[in-house]
């Protein structure tokens, strides 16, 4: 007999019972609708144990890699600790190891945790400020290539957490983080599939991590990274990305500027429109979109209508907090 743990509840499953039925039997109100494995309303995550494969059918690759499953299809074969996908893991302590400016308004922060954090480049963590505010920052580091965690923090006008990070954070400081979170990352399994990466601003942090991760995992297909900014001082990591392109012929980097002054080597226009003009048909592609939420939503629709499948489009919109 197997059992599931949900918060403080321990529930023994009866023969052939699904996780959803067991939770409902215990009077725990979890969301569900079709009970047939299609609507994804009962999507949950296993933080301990592996859900059976049939409970993951039809889910996107990154969800499978994060042990997401459909509670209505899940008849566990081992004990599971489960949570709703919106519930966050407990905070852990991290120590600042390095602080390095990358551009006028982007600062790279290196963090180390006591216990090694298992993450995929492109995921994000929540950072808590001393004032109790929480903000999400993408991980630009690649496990095995970089020590610890690297964040690229863009200073927002009047931003209380980004202001605190830019002005006061120094090596040796400690803070609390939650994570890893997010489903915008590279999964192996289709090594020749063309990849399209489009980002604005510090959306380059997850995208550069995803590109390096794909190359590290031996991705053979083309990887096209488009980074957009209004003006040239918003471009960063250019040397690093050009070196990456020189080392890996399948990787191409195109900086795009939407302003007036366009230096050689940069494309003119809004980043997703430049990418669309270059690749009008995206059938069979995998697409990663990070940065400004308007760009992410427009580019998502563009990529889908251009032929990319819904499950092949990965998003990380940087929503600006209002508190």
């Amino acid at each position: 007999m197997v059992a599931i743990r949900f918060g403080t509840h321990e529930i023994d499953l009866t023969d052939g019972e699904t996780v959803l039925d067991a939770l409902l039997r215990e009077g725990i109100a979890v969301p569900y609708s079709c009970r047939s494995g299609f609507c994804q309303t009962c999507l949950m995550c296993a933080s301990q144990g592996k859900p059976p494969r049939e409970a993951m059918q039809g889910l996107r690759d990154t969800w499978k890699a994060s042990n997401y499953f459909l509670a209505c299809r899940c008849k566990p074969v081992m004990d599971l600790e489960v949570r709703l996908t919106g519930d966050l893991p407990a905070p852990v302590r991290a120590r600042v190891q390095s602080v390095q400016p990358l551009s006028q308004d982007i600062l790279e922060i290196g963090l180390a945790t006591d216990e090694r954090l298992h993450y995929h480049p492109g995921q994000f963590i929540n950072v808590e400020s001393p004032g109790g505010l929480t903000r999400s920052y993408s991980l630009a580091s690649v496990p095995g290539e970089d020590d610890g965690l690297l964040l690229q923090v863009r200073r927002l006008p009047g931003g209380r957490v980004s202001g605190w990070i830019h002005e006061t954070l120094k090596p040796g400081d400690t803070l609390h983080i939650q994570g890893p979170l997010g489903d915008c990352f590279y999964c192996e399994g289709q090594p020749v599939q063309p990849l399209l990466l489009i980002g604005t601003g510090s959306g380059l942090a997850p995208l550069s991590g995803i590109a390096r991760d794909a190359l590290r995992q031996g991705h053979k297909g083309p990887i096209h990274l488009f980074h957009g900014s209004r003006s040239r001082d918003g471009l960063y990591l250019q040397d690093c990305l050009k070196r990456l392109a020189a080392r890996h012929p399948q990787f191409q980097y195109t900086p795009c500027l939407s302003g007036q002054d366009i230096p050689p080597g940069c494309a003119r226009g809004r980043v997703h429109e430049v990418a669309q003009a270059r690749f009008p048909c995206l059938s069979g592609w995998r697409v990663f979109l990070c940065g400004h939420p308007d760009m992410v939503q427009q580019a998502r629709m563009m990529a889908f209508m251009a032929g990319a499948a819904i499950n092949d489009i990965y998003l990380d919109p940087f929503n600006v907090a209002l508190t």
Binding site: S36, F38, C39, Q40, T41, R300, I310
Partner: peptide
């Protein structure tokens, strides 16, 4: 949301 909508279409 496109993901939710696609899931409903699938159902």
């Amino acid at each position: 949301d496109m993901d939710r909508q696609a899931a409903k279409q699938k159902a």
